[in-house]
Structure formats: structure tokens, C-alpha cells
Design a protein around this nucleic acid. Structure first.
Lengths: 156, 156
DNA sequence: AGTGAAAAAATATGTAG
DNA sequence: CTACATATTTTTTCACT
């Protein structure tokens, strides 16, 4: 039932392909091929293998949150009652405004990243989270500036 | 010099296209067209407009960090000396292991998301960050489990 | 595995309504 | 914005090494 992380052997070619496709998923195979000194067919085969192995989870258009009205980002640290932690996570997972949920060590139970339209919506969301049965306290860190936010995994 | 967030007017069609392309950037225009009841040429024009307006920042292969050896994720809360905060951010921004940097309200100056190969590399990274001139303290929250991590922005 | 060439599909362009 | 036709490019397959 749980996600198995199979060890995937990646050679230099695979790694380079991953770098290129993370920067631009629409790079023509012909260009990748000539850049790496292999044939287009091999590029095609390698990419299919990477997708099938789950190394590439999907191809995605990366959207600017601000441009679509998500003006507010916040990090919320949550402390939950240990006995109800599982159900708290289940509730949080269902909330569309909650994009990331990490179970972490330290004084907090979990760290969330949330995105909403406005400060008013953030206030409502914080109330909602605080109201979940099993949530003991929340600490909100409002994001004033995004200094860096890169979803591309470094391959090395 | 600063990033201008131009207000972009998006209608129902644009929003639907964004949803589809965030799920699968390789969806054929023909499929998008028939699904939305518009022509392929229009799909093409709309997507080009969205890219030019910066709503779509890029097309990216989404890679599973674990599958490429990034087994460890951590959230690090940093407190910096106010007078040196700018230069601290500049140093952090240069570090390849630091994927996200948020300037936040509250007791911490900034919140980081970092990814490394191993616990040993995390320890080294924490030392490195703690050693930056202007960093007063760091608090590391080791990620035990990723409950949710979605980079797709909800369009509504 | 990898290749080159052919076939199929998708994207991009242009004209006109 | 759409429809349609066409050109161009890209992806995919296949027989062979």
C-alpha cells in the first residue's frame, strides 16, 4: 500500500535529460539528441523509461500564483494532540488551500504551506485549521517576499 | 527593476487551459480544443498569450526527489541580525541545496526549504547556514514524511 | 541498449470570415 | 475569436546493428 521508492539507476545521459526537461519540458528531442550526442530515438526511449520508473512524475505548466490571483502565501506551523494527529493530517490534506504538508521533528507536529487570494481568506483559513478537532495551536508566518522558489530538483 | 505583477484578465477558457496544462503539459491541443469546444488554433493562441503574459512561467518535467537521490528534506527557520539580513539572504540564495526562501513575519527572519542526499549532508548544510555572517540562530525541522506536496496552483 | 529512416501526430502559420 | 487548409516540426515506431 505504501509508496515504494525503488532504486533507479541513472547514468550521465539520464541525468542530463532530467536537467534539460526540468528547465523546459518542450525541448525537442532532436535538440536534446544533438546536445548529448545520441539519437532522437534514444532520447525518446530514455524519457519513456524515466516516466515509467516514476522519476518524472509528470509534465507540468508552471503557473505564477500571483498572476492567477493567489496573492498570499503563508507557512503555518501546527501543533496537534498526538492521539488525533492522524485525523488532523487527513483533514488538512483535503483542504485545497493547503499545498504542502510536512510531518516534522521538533516542537511542531506539522508545517504547512498555504496559498490564498487575500489576507481575509488567510484569516478564514487559519480559523478553519485552528478549528480542526485535534489541533492544539497554530503559528502563522505570513510570507512578505518570496526570495527563491525553485521546483526543479538539482541533479548531481 | 522589481518584478511587476501585471493584472492579467483570465476568462473561463484560459482558466480551464491552465488547469489542463498543469496536470499534463503534453495534452494535445486537439484534445483541449474538443474538451472546451474551441478550435485548435485558438488553443494555440491562448497558450501563447498565457506564456507571453508570464502566467505560465515554463513547462517543466516534475521529478521525484527521492528517485534521484534527494532523500532528505528539511524546513529551516533562521533568525538573522537585522542589519545583515540582506546579505544573509544573498548568501542563502546562492546555495544550491536551498530550494525555497521566504521572508516572513513572526519570530523568524526567514523560512527555508532544503533538500540533500543524506542526514550527513543536512548536518553539513546546517553548519554552513549557521556560519553565515549575520545568522543568529537556526531551527531545523527534519521532514519525516511528505503528506502532500502539490506545485499545481488551484485556479478558481 | 542504440540507430537511421519512415510514419504518424502535433504544433504553428496564414487567409479569410 | 473561429474555421479551414497547409506547412513545419516533433514524436513515435520499426527493422536492424
Amino acid at each position: 500500500m505504501s509508496e515504494q521508492v525503488l532504486e533507479v539507476k541513472l547514468d550521465h545521459i539520464d541525468r542530463k535529460i532530467l536537467e534539460i526537461l526540468q528547465d523546459n519540458a518542450k525541448t525537442p528531442y532532436s535538440q536534446i539528441a544533438s546536445q548529448l550526442g545520441i539519437s532522437e530515438a534514444t532520447v525518446h526511449l530514455r524519457i519513456r523509461k524515466l516516466v515509467n520508473a516514476g522519476v518524472i512524475k509528470r509534465f507540468q505548466a508552471v503557473v505564477d500564483p500571483e498572476k492567477v490571483g493567489k496573492k498570499v502565501t503563508a507557512i503555518i506551523a501546527v501543533i496537534a494532540v498526538p492521539q488525533k494527529y492522524g485525523q488532523v493530517l487527513k483533514q488538512l490534506e483535503k483542504m485545497p488551500e493547503v499545498y504542502e504538508i510536512y510531518d516534522v521533528t521538533g516542537e511542531y507536529s506539522t508545517i504547512l504551506k498555504v496559498r490564498v487570494k487575500s489576507k481575509e481568506d488567510l484569516a478564514k483559513l487559519i480559523d478553519e485549521i485552528g478549528g480542526i478537532d485535534g489541533v492544539e495551536s497554530t503559528k502563522t508566518m505570513y510570507v512578505l517576499r518570496v526570495i527563491k522558489e525553485d521546483t526543479r530538483i538539482r541533479i548531481d
